[in-house]
Design a protein around this nucleic acid. Structure first.
Lengths: 183, 183
DNA sequence: CGTCTCGTTGAGAGTTTTCAATGTAAGTGG
DNA sequence: CCACTTACATTGAAAACTCTCAACGAGACG
């Protein structure tokens, strides 16, 4: 991320954040509520997921340490969220309210660039995921997931979350793994 | 898009663009080449797609009139593109080079906000597509596509492009359609 | 020790693809 | 304008992939 921020600017920047502690399973943004902030993960790990009409969860994003997470759609359009954001481990986050972000952009205009680049990168990653979901088989998506995310994440989360991320049932993921094992 | 630009500012802004005409089937960005601009579609329609190892095309994005299109990943990371961008109808586009964009941001800082918001919206749409690809059946994805995009687009493009967008084979789309018809 | 959640396994069913054949529409050169 | 070619769409049968449901096993936790 190529935005140089001086110490002085950083001092200003941090005043716009609010710290919050989360325990495992705590819900940061609840589905159906309004979202007026985004969260920077200082430690721990969160996930954003939607629940479909059949009650199945689909994970849109994991946010380990150093990542941002929110329901962008709900935040932008100021409508009720369709995603739920939950801590999958005890976590420390910094919340940035949309209104504070606006003030921050006025105080430190460089931050506008930071967030533009951040969003561009997120867009690239999400586009790639769309392509992968269409061009790769379930097994390839799983291997892809394993090689993309650090072992530390893989070991920290239940397997069913991996299934909900790559878009298969937990049962089928289990079968794929046992088949890969036999090879 | 809530960025107010004065006439005077707009005059400055347009100086950073280059107009280009494309004929149907013309390729704007070729897979494997470097990308140093993004394109605003004034008229016509383009598509961005990737070709997988089996030779199948997967469409990431359609860009009708008023939309932006590029291979964001190649542009950002200055690496060879994995997407190809092609006109699916005769089109007029305005190209904005990355270097010109930087100059534009200096000349009219407000535009930084415009592009941040633009990217945020694109991110939302793409995230939604990831969710849809996981939680909807092929038939639902098709109906969703039909209700999201205007008939003008649907009528203008071959059916196989719709298939390559929703992530099914052309044969299967054809079968779904005939089944929907019978109902 | 129960209880709960998660992971595994198997059989059967549903969805989607593959392959091959055929039909249809649209562009091209004469 | 016609004949030719090419790209696109449709259909059917068989195969591949993935899900569903139900049963069972293992570990975590109170």
């Amino acid at each position: 991320m190529k935005v140089d921020i001086s110490d002085e600017e950083m001092q200003k920047v941090i005043t716009f954040f609010t710290a919050k502690s989360l325990q495992k399973k705590d819900i940061l943004y609840r589905e159906g509520s309004y979202v007026d902030s985004m969260a920077f993960v200082c430690s721990g790990c969160l996930r954003a997921y939607s629940v479909d009409e059949n009650g199945f969860e689909h994970i849109v994003q994991f946010a380990p340490e150093g990542w941002w997470i929110t329901d962008m759609l709900a935040l932008l359009q100021q409508q009720k969220s369709t995603l739920q954001v939950e801590a999958i481990a005890d976590s420390e986050v910094l919340l940035l309210k949309r209104s504070e972000q606006e003030k921050m952009f006025e105080a430190v205009p460089k931050m506008e660039r930071y967030f533009r680049i951040l969003t561009e990168n997120a867009l690239c990653a999400t586009r790639q995921r769309v392509i992968d979901s269409m061009s790769l088989s379930a097994k390839e998506r799983y291997l892809n997931f394993c090689s993309t995310y650090p072992d530390s994440l893989l070991n920290a989360i239940p397997q069913k979350y991996v299934a909900a991320y790559i878009g298969v049932t937990p049962e089928f993921l289990s079968k794929m793994r046992s088949q890969l094992y036999r090879e």
